[in-house]
């Protein structure tokens, strides 16, 4: 699986610029959510919705991505890599 992904990345010119928007959004959301407080869980949800809208994604897109995330170790690795690049630099 990793070999396939690597070749696809190479063929498509994937790299820092080639991170899927859902991956980038998820990584940054998981980082930023720890850095703020929320008046209620509705406000937390609203914050996510704003980020989705700014990324051109819908809640349906996000829910589908989360489901895919649960099933794909490779996708989780991508999020983790992006998280560490964004959050810990």
């Amino acid at each position: 699986m990793a070999i396939v992904v690597a070749f696809i990345a190479a063929a498509c010119g994937g790299g820092g610029d080639g991170v899927a928007p859902e991956v980038a959004l998820e990584a940054r959301w998981q980082c930023d959510v720890q850095r703020q407080t929320f008046d209620d869980l509705g406000a937390l949800d609203a914050e996510l919705n704003v980020r989705l809208a700014n990324s051109g994604l819908t809640r349906v897109d996000y829910d589908a991505f989360k489901e895919e995330l649960g099933a794909s170790a490779e996708l989780r690795n991508q999020v983790a890599d992006e998280y560490e690049t964004y959050c810990l630099s």
Binding site: Q30, Q34, R76, V79
Partner: peptide
């Protein structure tokens, strides 16, 4: 209620 291996998620 599942944290998949390598997944990052949060509790509130």
């Amino acid at each position: 209620n599942t944290l998949s291996a390598g997944e990052i998620d949060f509790t509130s």
